[in-house]
Design a protein around this nucleic acid. Structure first.
Lengths: 194, 194
DNA sequence: GACGGTGTACAGAAAAAACTGAATAAACTA
DNA sequence: TAGTTTATTCAGTTTTTTCTGTACACCGTC
Protein backbone atom coordinates (compact mmCIF):
# COMPACT_ATOMS: atom_id res chain seq x y z
CA UNK A 1 0.00 0.00 0.00
CA UNK A 2 1.15 3.53 0.71
CA UNK A 3 3.45 4.98 3.29
CA UNK A 4 1.36 6.77 5.87
CA UNK A 5 3.51 9.87 5.87
CA UNK A 6 5.52 9.69 2.69
CA UNK A 7 5.21 13.45 2.44
CA UNK A 8 7.89 13.72 5.10
CA UNK A 9 10.22 11.02 3.89
CA UNK A 10 12.32 12.19 0.99
CA UNK A 11 14.22 9.01 0.14
CA UNK A 12 13.31 5.41 0.83
CA UNK A 13 15.69 2.95 2.32
CA UNK A 14 15.45 -0.73 3.26
CA UNK A 15 14.50 0.06 6.85
CA UNK A 16 11.65 2.28 5.74
CA UNK A 17 10.37 -0.63 3.71
CA UNK A 18 10.72 -2.86 6.75
CA UNK A 19 8.67 -0.50 8.83
CA UNK A 20 6.00 -0.50 6.16
CA UNK A 21 5.87 -4.26 6.23
CA UNK A 22 5.77 -4.48 9.99
CA UNK A 23 2.96 -1.96 10.19
CA UNK A 24 1.11 -3.98 7.63
CA UNK A 25 1.49 -7.07 9.81
CA UNK A 26 0.24 -5.29 12.89
CA UNK A 27 -2.66 -3.76 11.01
CA UNK A 28 -3.55 -7.19 9.70
CA UNK A 29 -3.57 -8.61 13.22
CA UNK A 30 -5.75 -5.78 14.46
CA UNK A 31 -8.08 -6.36 11.58
CA UNK A 32 -8.34 -10.04 12.41
CA UNK A 33 -8.89 -9.21 16.05
CA UNK A 34 -11.75 -6.91 15.26
CA UNK A 35 -13.30 -9.48 12.98
CA UNK A 36 -13.60 -11.69 16.07
CA UNK A 37 -15.99 -9.07 17.36
CA UNK A 38 -18.01 -8.90 14.17
CA UNK A 39 -16.34 -6.01 12.42
CA UNK A 40 -15.34 -6.39 8.81
CA UNK A 41 -11.81 -6.12 7.48
CA UNK A 42 -12.22 -2.55 6.32
CA UNK A 43 -13.12 -1.36 9.79
CA UNK A 44 -10.13 -3.18 11.23
CA UNK A 45 -7.76 -1.81 8.65
CA UNK A 46 -8.86 1.76 9.21
CA UNK A 47 -8.42 1.23 12.92
CA UNK A 48 -4.87 0.06 12.31
CA UNK A 49 -4.07 2.99 10.04
CA UNK A 50 -5.36 5.40 12.64
CA UNK A 51 -3.32 3.63 15.26
CA UNK A 52 -0.07 4.34 13.42
CA UNK A 53 -1.00 7.84 12.31
CA UNK A 54 1.05 10.59 13.90
CA UNK A 55 -1.54 13.28 13.31
CA UNK A 56 -5.33 13.30 13.39
CA UNK A 57 -6.66 12.25 10.00
CA UNK A 58 -9.36 13.81 7.87
CA UNK A 59 -11.78 11.88 5.71
CA UNK A 60 -9.62 12.71 2.71
CA UNK A 61 -6.49 11.47 4.45
CA UNK A 62 -8.16 8.21 5.34
CA UNK A 63 -9.72 7.88 1.94
CA UNK A 64 -6.27 8.15 0.38
CA UNK A 65 -4.60 5.84 2.89
CA UNK A 66 -7.30 3.20 2.50
CA UNK A 67 -7.60 3.56 -1.25
CA UNK A 68 -11.33 3.86 -0.85
CA UNK A 69 -14.03 6.38 -1.62
CA UNK A 70 -14.74 9.09 0.87
CA UNK A 71 -18.25 7.77 1.20
CA UNK A 72 -17.06 4.40 2.41
CA UNK A 73 -14.56 5.92 4.78
CA UNK A 74 -17.28 8.11 6.19
CA UNK A 75 -19.44 5.13 7.12
CA UNK A 76 -16.46 3.13 8.31
CA UNK A 77 -15.18 5.83 10.62
CA UNK A 78 -18.68 6.20 12.04
CA UNK A 79 -18.58 2.51 12.90
CA UNK A 80 -15.26 2.96 14.65
CA UNK A 81 -16.47 5.97 16.58
CA UNK A 82 -19.60 4.06 17.51
CA UNK A 83 -17.43 1.27 18.86
CA UNK A 84 -15.29 3.85 20.65
CA UNK A 85 -12.19 2.67 18.84
CA UNK A 86 -11.75 6.12 17.33
CA UNK A 87 -12.89 9.57 18.22
CA UNK A 88 -13.37 12.87 16.49
CA UNK A 89 -11.15 15.75 17.52
CA UNK A 90 -11.43 19.40 16.63
CA UNK A 91 -8.44 21.17 15.21
CA UNK A 92 -8.33 24.91 14.73
CA UNK A 93 -7.34 26.05 11.30
CA UNK A 94 -9.37 23.45 9.41
CA UNK A 95 -13.03 22.84 8.86
CA UNK A 96 -12.56 19.14 8.29
CA UNK A 97 -13.63 16.52 10.77
CA UNK A 98 -10.47 15.00 12.19
CA UNK A 99 -10.22 11.61 13.78
CA UNK A 100 -7.73 9.81 15.99
CA UNK A 101 -7.54 6.27 17.25
CA UNK A 102 -8.50 5.61 20.81
CA UNK A 103 -5.02 5.03 22.13
CA UNK A 104 -6.03 3.71 25.53
CA UNK A 105 -6.66 0.11 24.68
CA UNK A 106 -7.79 -0.64 28.20
CA UNK A 107 -10.51 1.89 27.79
CA UNK A 108 -11.35 0.68 24.34
CA UNK A 109 -11.63 -2.88 25.50
CA UNK A 110 -13.68 -2.18 28.58
CA UNK A 111 -15.98 0.14 26.68
CA UNK A 112 -16.56 -2.23 23.85
CA UNK A 113 -16.91 -5.20 26.09
CA UNK A 114 -19.15 -3.47 28.59
CA UNK A 115 -21.38 -1.98 25.95
CA UNK A 116 -21.96 -5.28 24.26
CA UNK A 117 -22.68 -7.09 27.48
CA UNK A 118 -24.93 -4.32 28.72
CA UNK A 119 -26.84 -4.40 25.46
CA UNK A 120 -27.16 -8.14 25.78
CA UNK A 121 -28.36 -7.97 29.38
CA UNK A 122 -30.86 -5.22 28.64
CA UNK A 123 -32.18 -6.98 25.56
CA UNK A 124 -32.79 -10.23 27.36
CA UNK A 125 -34.16 -8.74 30.54
CA UNK A 126 -36.64 -6.80 28.47
CA UNK A 127 -38.02 -9.89 26.80
CA UNK A 128 -37.96 -11.93 30.01
CA UNK A 129 -39.83 -9.24 31.91
CA UNK A 130 -42.42 -9.24 29.19
CA UNK A 131 -42.80 -12.97 28.83
CA UNK A 132 -42.41 -14.43 32.32
CA UNK A 133 -45.54 -12.77 33.76
CA UNK A 134 -47.57 -14.18 30.88
CA UNK A 135 -46.28 -17.66 31.61
CA UNK A 136 -47.16 -17.15 35.27
CA UNK A 137 -50.66 -16.19 34.26
CA UNK A 138 -51.06 -19.39 32.25
CA UNK A 139 -49.66 -21.44 35.10
CA UNK A 140 -52.09 -19.81 37.53
CA UNK A 141 -54.99 -20.99 35.36
CA UNK A 142 -56.57 -24.41 34.85
CA UNK A 143 -54.48 -27.03 36.56
CA UNK A 144 -54.03 -29.77 33.95
CA UNK A 145 -53.71 -29.48 30.19
CA UNK A 146 -51.09 -30.17 27.56
CA UNK A 147 -50.61 -26.44 27.17
CA UNK A 148 -49.90 -26.11 30.86
CA UNK A 149 -47.21 -28.75 30.67
CA UNK A 150 -45.61 -26.82 27.80
CA UNK A 151 -45.75 -23.64 29.79
CA UNK A 152 -44.23 -25.25 32.84
CA UNK A 153 -41.25 -26.51 30.91
CA UNK A 154 -40.65 -23.21 29.13
CA UNK A 155 -41.02 -21.35 32.37
CA UNK A 156 -38.36 -23.29 34.21
CA UNK A 157 -35.98 -22.93 31.28
CA UNK A 158 -36.55 -19.21 31.20
CA UNK A 159 -36.00 -18.87 34.92
CA UNK A 160 -32.61 -20.44 34.34
CA UNK A 161 -31.92 -17.87 31.64
CA UNK A 162 -32.97 -15.12 34.00
CA UNK A 163 -30.65 -16.50 36.64
CA UNK A 164 -27.83 -16.39 34.11
CA UNK A 165 -28.48 -12.83 33.08
CA UNK A 166 -28.84 -11.72 36.67
CA UNK A 167 -25.40 -13.13 37.23
CA UNK A 168 -24.03 -11.62 34.03
CA UNK A 169 -25.47 -8.25 34.98
CA UNK A 170 -23.65 -8.25 38.28
CA UNK A 171 -20.52 -9.57 36.60
CA UNK A 172 -20.51 -6.66 34.22
CA UNK A 173 -21.32 -4.13 36.90
CA UNK A 174 -18.83 -5.39 39.41
CA UNK A 175 -15.74 -6.59 37.54
CA UNK A 176 -15.81 -4.23 34.64
CA UNK A 177 -16.83 -1.14 36.50
CA UNK A 178 -13.92 -1.88 38.81
CA UNK A 179 -11.75 -2.07 35.75
CA UNK A 180 -13.04 1.23 34.45
CA UNK A 181 -12.48 3.06 37.68
CA UNK A 182 -9.00 1.61 37.68
CA UNK A 183 -8.10 2.67 34.15
CA UNK A 184 -10.16 5.58 32.96
CA UNK A 185 -9.14 9.21 33.11
CA UNK A 186 -12.59 10.39 32.00
CA UNK A 187 -15.99 8.94 32.90
CA UNK A 188 -17.76 7.48 29.86
CA UNK A 189 -21.41 7.88 29.02
CA UNK A 190 -23.37 5.01 27.58
CA UNK A 191 -24.84 5.76 24.17
CA UNK A 192 -28.29 4.17 24.13
CA UNK A 193 -30.71 3.95 21.26
CA UNK A 194 -34.42 4.59 21.99
CA UNK B 1 -43.87 -20.42 12.09
CA UNK B 2 -44.60 -23.90 13.27
CA UNK B 3 -45.27 -25.39 16.66
CA UNK B 4 -42.18 -27.28 17.74
CA UNK B 5 -44.13 -30.37 18.74
CA UNK B 6 -47.50 -30.03 17.13
CA UNK B 7 -47.47 -33.76 16.65
CA UNK B 8 -48.35 -34.07 20.32
CA UNK B 9 -50.90 -31.28 20.58
CA UNK B 10 -54.24 -32.34 19.18
CA UNK B 11 -56.21 -29.09 19.44
CA UNK B 12 -55.00 -25.51 19.56
CA UNK B 13 -56.27 -22.97 22.02
CA UNK B 14 -55.49 -19.31 22.70
CA UNK B 15 -52.89 -20.16 25.31
CA UNK B 16 -51.05 -22.41 22.89
CA UNK B 17 -50.93 -19.50 20.49
CA UNK B 18 -49.63 -17.29 23.29
CA UNK B 19 -46.85 -19.73 24.04
CA UNK B 20 -45.91 -19.75 20.36
CA UNK B 21 -45.68 -15.99 20.37
CA UNK B 22 -43.67 -15.84 23.55
CA UNK B 23 -41.21 -18.41 22.29
CA UNK B 24 -40.89 -16.37 19.14
CA UNK B 25 -40.03 -13.32 21.21
CA UNK B 26 -37.41 -15.16 23.21
CA UNK B 27 -35.92 -16.71 20.10
CA UNK B 28 -35.74 -13.29 18.51
CA UNK B 29 -33.89 -11.92 21.54
CA UNK B 30 -31.45 -14.82 21.47
CA UNK B 31 -30.92 -14.23 17.80
CA UNK B 32 -30.17 -10.56 18.39
CA UNK B 33 -27.86 -11.47 21.24
CA UNK B 34 -25.85 -13.81 19.08
CA UNK B 35 -25.63 -11.22 16.35
CA UNK B 36 -23.72 -9.09 18.86
CA UNK B 37 -21.08 -11.78 18.74
CA UNK B 38 -20.98 -11.93 14.96
CA UNK B 39 -23.39 -14.78 14.30
CA UNK B 40 -26.08 -14.31 11.74
CA UNK B 41 -29.81 -14.48 12.38
CA UNK B 42 -30.14 -18.06 11.16
CA UNK B 43 -27.62 -19.32 13.67
CA UNK B 44 -29.40 -17.46 16.44
CA UNK B 45 -32.81 -18.74 15.45
CA UNK B 46 -31.65 -22.34 15.35
CA UNK B 47 -30.11 -21.85 18.77
CA UNK B 48 -33.45 -20.61 20.06
CA UNK B 49 -35.38 -23.48 18.52
CA UNK B 50 -33.00 -25.97 20.08
CA UNK B 51 -33.36 -24.19 23.39
CA UNK B 52 -37.11 -24.80 23.47
CA UNK B 53 -36.96 -28.32 22.03
CA UNK B 54 -38.02 -31.02 24.45
CA UNK B 55 -36.17 -33.78 22.61
CA UNK B 56 -32.88 -33.87 20.72
CA UNK B 57 -33.48 -32.80 17.14
CA UNK B 58 -32.31 -34.40 13.92
CA UNK B 59 -31.28 -32.49 10.82
CA UNK B 60 -34.71 -33.20 9.36
CA UNK B 61 -36.45 -31.90 12.47
CA UNK B 62 -34.45 -28.72 12.39
CA UNK B 63 -34.86 -28.35 8.66
CA UNK B 64 -38.63 -28.49 9.10
CA UNK B 65 -38.70 -26.19 12.14
CA UNK B 66 -36.50 -23.62 10.42
CA UNK B 67 -38.19 -23.92 7.04
CA UNK B 68 -34.79 -24.33 5.48
CA UNK B 69 -32.97 -26.89 3.42
CA UNK B 70 -31.19 -29.70 5.18
CA UNK B 71 -27.92 -28.52 3.68
CA UNK B 72 -28.23 -25.12 5.30
CA UNK B 73 -29.21 -26.58 8.63
CA UNK B 74 -26.21 -28.87 8.41
CA UNK B 75 -23.78 -25.98 8.11
CA UNK B 76 -25.66 -23.89 10.66
CA UNK B 77 -25.64 -26.60 13.30
CA UNK B 78 -21.92 -27.08 12.70
CA UNK B 79 -21.45 -23.40 13.49
CA UNK B 80 -23.41 -23.80 16.70
CA UNK B 81 -21.46 -26.88 17.72
CA UNK B 82 -18.24 -25.04 16.91
CA UNK B 83 -19.31 -22.22 19.20
CA UNK B 84 -20.30 -24.79 21.84
CA UNK B 85 -23.86 -23.50 21.87
CA UNK B 86 -25.12 -26.93 20.80
CA UNK B 87 -23.80 -30.43 20.96
CA UNK B 88 -24.38 -33.72 19.23
CA UNK B 89 -25.85 -36.57 21.24
CA UNK B 90 -26.21 -40.21 20.34
CA UNK B 91 -29.58 -41.85 20.67
CA UNK B 92 -30.07 -45.57 20.36
CA UNK B 93 -32.75 -46.61 17.94
CA UNK B 94 -31.91 -44.05 15.27
CA UNK B 95 -29.07 -43.59 12.84
CA UNK B 96 -29.58 -39.83 12.63
CA UNK B 97 -27.27 -37.29 14.20
CA UNK B 98 -29.16 -35.71 17.03
CA UNK B 99 -28.45 -32.32 18.54
CA UNK B 100 -29.36 -30.51 21.73
CA UNK B 101 -28.78 -26.98 22.91
CA UNK B 102 -26.05 -26.40 25.44
CA UNK B 103 -28.32 -25.73 28.39
CA UNK B 104 -25.62 -24.49 30.72
CA UNK B 105 -25.48 -20.90 29.64
CA UNK B 106 -22.71 -20.18 32.10
CA UNK B 107 -20.57 -22.70 30.34
CA UNK B 108 -21.60 -21.46 26.95
CA UNK B 109 -20.71 -17.92 27.83
CA UNK B 110 -17.40 -18.67 29.44
CA UNK B 111 -16.38 -20.99 26.64
CA UNK B 112 -17.23 -18.60 23.90
CA UNK B 113 -15.79 -15.64 25.70
CA UNK B 114 -12.59 -17.39 26.70
CA UNK B 115 -11.99 -18.83 23.27
CA UNK B 116 -12.35 -15.49 21.56
CA UNK B 117 -10.10 -13.70 23.98
CA UNK B 118 -7.52 -16.44 23.85
CA UNK B 119 -7.51 -16.31 20.08
CA UNK B 120 -7.12 -12.56 20.24
CA UNK B 121 -4.26 -12.73 22.70
CA UNK B 122 -2.43 -15.42 20.75
CA UNK B 123 -2.89 -13.62 17.45
CA UNK B 124 -1.51 -10.36 18.73
CA UNK B 125 1.33 -11.83 20.74
CA UNK B 126 2.43 -13.72 17.65
CA UNK B 127 2.71 -10.59 15.57
CA UNK B 128 4.26 -8.54 18.38
CA UNK B 129 6.89 -11.21 19.02
CA UNK B 130 7.73 -11.13 15.34
CA UNK B 131 7.80 -7.40 14.91
CA UNK B 132 9.21 -5.95 18.12
CA UNK B 133 12.69 -7.53 17.71
CA UNK B 134 12.91 -6.06 14.23
CA UNK B 135 12.10 -2.63 15.57
CA UNK B 136 14.74 -3.10 18.25
CA UNK B 137 17.25 -3.96 15.57
CA UNK B 138 16.48 -0.77 13.70
CA UNK B 139 16.71 1.24 16.90
CA UNK B 140 20.08 -0.33 17.71
CA UNK B 141 21.44 0.93 14.40
CA UNK B 142 22.45 4.40 13.20
CA UNK B 143 21.48 6.97 15.76
CA UNK B 144 19.71 9.71 13.78
CA UNK B 145 17.50 9.40 10.73
CA UNK B 146 13.88 10.04 9.85
CA UNK B 147 13.37 6.30 9.70
CA UNK B 148 14.66 5.93 13.20
CA UNK B 149 12.19 8.51 14.47
CA UNK B 150 9.41 6.55 12.80
CA UNK B 151 10.59 3.37 14.37
CA UNK B 152 10.81 4.92 17.80
CA UNK B 153 7.27 6.11 17.71
CA UNK B 154 5.90 2.81 16.42
CA UNK B 155 7.91 0.94 18.99
CA UNK B 156 6.55 2.81 21.97
CA UNK B 157 3.01 2.40 20.66
CA UNK B 158 3.53 -1.31 20.24
CA UNK B 159 4.98 -1.67 23.71
CA UNK B 160 1.75 -0.17 24.98
CA UNK B 161 -0.17 -2.76 22.98
CA UNK B 162 1.98 -5.48 24.44
CA UNK B 163 1.33 -4.16 27.90
CA UNK B 164 -2.38 -4.33 27.15
CA UNK B 165 -2.29 -7.89 25.90
CA UNK B 166 -0.13 -8.99 28.78
CA UNK B 167 -2.80 -7.65 31.04
CA UNK B 168 -5.60 -9.18 28.98
CA UNK B 169 -3.85 -12.50 29.03
CA UNK B 170 -3.73 -12.56 32.78
CA UNK B 171 -7.28 -11.27 32.95
CA UNK B 172 -8.50 -14.18 30.88
CA UNK B 173 -6.43 -16.69 32.76
CA UNK B 174 -7.30 -15.47 36.19
CA UNK B 175 -10.87 -14.27 36.18
CA UNK B 176 -12.32 -16.57 33.61
CA UNK B 177 -10.55 -19.69 34.68
CA UNK B 178 -11.88 -18.95 38.15
CA UNK B 179 -15.29 -18.70 36.59
CA UNK B 180 -14.90 -22.00 34.82
CA UNK B 181 -13.77 -23.85 37.87
CA UNK B 182 -16.71 -22.36 39.68
CA UNK B 183 -19.34 -23.34 37.15
CA UNK B 184 -18.31 -26.30 35.07
CA UNK B 185 -19.17 -29.88 35.78
CA UNK B 186 -16.81 -31.21 33.10
CA UNK B 187 -13.41 -29.82 32.14
CA UNK B 188 -13.40 -28.37 28.61
CA UNK B 189 -10.69 -28.77 26.03
CA UNK B 190 -9.71 -25.92 23.80
CA UNK B 191 -10.21 -26.66 20.10
CA UNK B 192 -7.19 -25.22 18.30
CA UNK B 193 -6.53 -25.07 14.61
CA UNK B 194 -3.02 -25.90 13.38
C1' DG C 1 -22.90 -57.18 -3.57
C1' DA C 2 -27.30 -54.16 -4.02
C1' DC C 3 -30.32 -51.13 -1.40
C1' DG C 4 -32.10 -47.55 1.67
C1' DG C 5 -31.16 -44.01 4.70
C1' DT C 6 -28.14 -40.40 6.25
C1' DG C 7 -24.70 -36.47 6.19
C1' DT C 8 -21.92 -33.45 3.42
C1' DA C 9 -19.48 -31.34 -0.91
C1' DC C 10 -20.34 -28.60 -4.66
C1' DA C 11 -22.02 -25.31 -8.11
C1' DG C 12 -25.11 -22.13 -8.96
C1' DA C 13 -29.15 -18.94 -7.44
C1' DA C 14 -30.78 -15.62 -4.26
C1' DA C 15 -30.00 -12.30 -0.80
C1' DA C 16 -27.22 -9.19 1.74
C1' DA C 17 -23.39 -6.21 2.38
C1' DA C 18 -19.85 -3.25 0.92
C1' DC C 19 -18.55 0.15 -2.07
C1' DT C 20 -18.92 3.98 -5.49
C1' DG C 21 -20.04 8.52 -7.93
C1' DA C 22 -23.27 11.97 -8.26
C1' DA C 23 -26.42 14.81 -5.93
C1' DT C 24 -27.69 17.14 -1.78
C1' DA C 25 -27.26 19.30 2.66
C1' DA C 26 -24.88 21.82 5.99
C1' DA C 27 -21.62 25.02 7.65
C1' DC C 28 -18.68 28.48 7.04
C1' DT C 29 -16.60 32.87 4.23
C1' DA C 30 -16.80 36.91 2.20
C1' DT D 1 -26.62 36.68 -0.48
C1' DA D 2 -23.64 33.89 -3.35
C1' DG D 3 -19.79 30.92 -3.20
C1' DT D 4 -16.71 27.27 -1.02
C1' DT D 5 -15.72 23.55 1.37
C1' DT D 6 -16.95 19.52 3.67
C1' DA D 7 -19.99 15.62 5.13
C1' DT D 8 -23.73 12.71 4.10
C1' DT D 9 -27.64 10.69 1.42
C1' DC D 10 -29.04 7.92 -2.30
C1' DA D 11 -29.38 4.81 -6.25
C1' DG D 12 -26.96 1.68 -8.54
C1' DT D 13 -22.94 -1.75 -8.98
C1' DT D 14 -19.79 -5.06 -7.35
C1' DT D 15 -18.53 -8.38 -4.10
C1' DT D 16 -19.57 -11.55 -0.44
C1' DT D 17 -22.52 -14.44 2.08
C1' DT D 18 -26.29 -17.43 2.56
C1' DC D 19 -29.18 -20.79 0.82
C1' DT D 20 -30.74 -24.51 -2.31
C1' DG D 21 -30.93 -28.90 -5.05
C1' DT D 22 -28.28 -32.38 -6.92
C1' DA D 23 -24.80 -35.55 -6.53
C1' DC D 24 -22.06 -38.39 -3.95
C1' DA D 25 -19.89 -40.84 -0.09
C1' DC D 26 -20.56 -43.46 3.86
C1' DC D 27 -22.61 -46.98 6.63
C1' DG D 28 -25.33 -50.43 7.96
C1' DT D 29 -28.96 -54.26 6.41
C1' DC D 30 -30.76 -57.51 3.41
Amino acid sequence: MKNLDDTHVAKRNPETEDIEEMRELVIEAMSQTMSLYGFNATVGRLCGILFFAKEPMSLDDMSQAMGMSKTSVCTTIKTLVGAKAAKQVWLRGTRKDMYVAEKNFFQYFSDFFCNNLRTEVALNFAVLDKVLPLYEKILAGESRSPTRAEAEEDFSKLLEVKRYYTWLDSFVKQYLEDLKILQLPNPAESPDEP
